[in-house]
Design a protein around this nucleic acid. Structure first.
Lengths: 334, 334
DNA sequence: TTGAAAGCGCTAACAG
DNA sequence: CTGTTAGCGCTTTCAA
């Protein structure tokens, strides 16, 4: 049988209240009985149940993590840093893959609440805004990662997408490209990257061709498909800014299918700097998000909210950084 | 305040026992009161607490998942299918990254037990065997994925590593390669792949050169390093079988550094068929594990053990499949 | 410094 | 068909 606090109390000749106090380092206990209790705990291989203690009003010490898809390298990389930080802080994390699906989001949120998680981290493209409002009313600490929606009154950490879009585009412009396509995702963060793309054009006095702005659901295949079409145009772009590495790889594939050589015939910039950016040939020039810092930060923020040490909503934007590798070169058109 | 079963009982003018029964579809309840209770539950937005019900001896409906590193594509892909299946079966999964670290494994295992998980899935290279024995004695359902250790008396699902090693090597041999290096991981599954590698040589009557068998910790960098050395030999191998895609990519990089062209100068086979195998140029010939089936199966097995419908330990081996892409070609040496 | 006792939200006999 | 009641393992007053 699993040992309980009663077993320990009995064996140590104290009350369960005393045992509880030594477990939690609370109240005043004489050094001798504390030692004795500790010994008995070890001897009996006793481990206090979180379930029982949670029922008495304490925390469950577990966090919910809602992500679209852990098999996407960006999310798996960020999940790793989140779990690491949570572990450091003594919390476990329950992983939930939502596929950005409305119903799944709702199901998970209910499940997690029934599990009485201490806090919830939501990553990227969460669909069900109404649900979000409800959560906040229910007083569950909720924070968002990589999903900077100004209409929401929630703490968020994200990369500065506007700036990211700007530096990626500006990098291309500075290499002489004038006909630059952008393939964005259908999520909010991409919107900001598009604004950045436009801003870069403005700052260099280059006209933006609206037909150069495409939106797809992020995947290699979709990147490949759109690019195929782009390259069939009469005046195809000489550079493409893909709003994430997955799409960028699709771009690379389409270019290769067409027999173009990279970067000579087409420059490509990705976004996220996932492991994928390092495995292509040539390696992908991309915009890096400081994944580790972001993951740690978001965990620290939920925990602060859980512990109510900081109840004001904050919005922290990390600086993106251009990692220049092999897929961008000077424009040789004309 | 969060609603409890008492609130529902009161509002519906029944006892909490009745409410409990409708929640769990147990006992005999008249259709009319069942309906009324259900309505009140909805009206009050009541959701039964898992922590309270777990305390009464029911399950927590959560599984622990111990993996080395979720940011490794193989593990993130398999985690995805595990979580999906668990979700279908009404269970959540707590993700734990151990880095195959002895102490971390121990910490997580204790944590998970205190959280009273229903079952535990352990993936790949678990170090702490003693701990494992203890878990089993504690009567916690434990199963293993991709870690087929005959000395352990635990259910396991895995790919047939021996066969995987065999088909990869045989593929190379059949293309005329005689000097084939294998870069394996320092884990048990790789051992079986090495045996398969040897068996393939035997079956083709090709002598195995022991110095062609290398072992590293899996990473792109390590793959690259070992390959560099390999290629500096007087008679470098004409083909390399890397025991996972990460290492294979390292091989590709080293070859490129050396100015070799793939597959003309060097054939490469990977293992796992992760997303990484599809992003290289040329795409990687690799051995596929049926990740989806494996993930589903392992979840089904733990659940069977949890529900005690099947207490005998099973060992299911899935068939690997060679996916021929662009990194292997006929040997042109001599 | 220690312990008795109430209670967290729910389940499971057992009675009625 | 429905309700009473005794826990589950732990925390937390409050007394002693």
């Amino acid at each position: 049988m699993k040992k309980t606090i009663y077993d320990v109390a009995e064996e140590a000749n104290v009350s369960i209240a005393t045992v509880s106090k030594v477990i939690n380092n609370k109240g005043r206990i004489s050094e001798s009985t504390r030692k004795r209790v500790l010994e008995v705990m070890k001897k009996l291989d006793y481990h206090p149940s979180f379930v029982a203690s949670a029922l008495t009003g304490k925390r469950t010490e577990t966090l919910g993590l809602l992500i679209p898809d852990i098999s996407n390298p960006f999310f798996s990389e960020i999940s790793r840093t989140i779990e690491d930080r949570a572990y450091e802080q003594g919390k476990s994390v329950i992983m939930c893959n939502t596929d950005n699906n409305y119903e799944k989001e709702a199901m998970y949120v209910e499940l997690l609440q029934r599990k009485e998680i201490d806090g919830l981290i939501i990553t990227s493209g969460f669909q069900n805004k109404q649900l979000l409002q409800q959560l906040i009313q229910n007083d569950l600490p909720v924070v968002m990662l990589a999903h900077d929606d100004p209409s929401l009154d929630i703490s968020v950490v994200s990369v500065d997408d506007f700036k990211g879009g700007f530096i990626a585009t500006w990098h291309l412009l500075s290499k002489g490209h004038q006909n630059i396509a952008i393939i964005a995702e259908k999520v909010r963060s991409s919107k900001m990257r598009i604004y950045g793309y436009q801003e870069a054009h403005d700052s260099e006095n280059v006209e933006v061709n609206e037909s150069n702005i495409l939106k797809v659901t992020a995947s290699i295949t979709n990147g490949q498909k759109v690019t195929k079409k782009l390259l069939e145009r009469d005046t195809p772009p000489t550079a493409i800014f893909a709003c994430n590495d997955l799409i960028a790889i699709g771009v690379l594939k389409a270019a290769r299918d067409k027999g173009l050589s990279i970067p000579e015939d087409l420059s490509v910039v990705g976004f996220d700097n996932t492991i994928l950016a390092t495995t292509t040939v040539p390696a992908l020039t991309t915009v890096a998000q400081p994944i580790n810092e972001m993951g740690r930060k978001i965990v620290d923020i939920v925990i602060q909210k859980i512990e109510k040490v900081n109840e004001v909503e904050e919005r922290v934007l990390f600086l993106p950084e251009l990692i220049e590798r092999g897929t961008t070169a000077d424009c040789i058109k004309e």
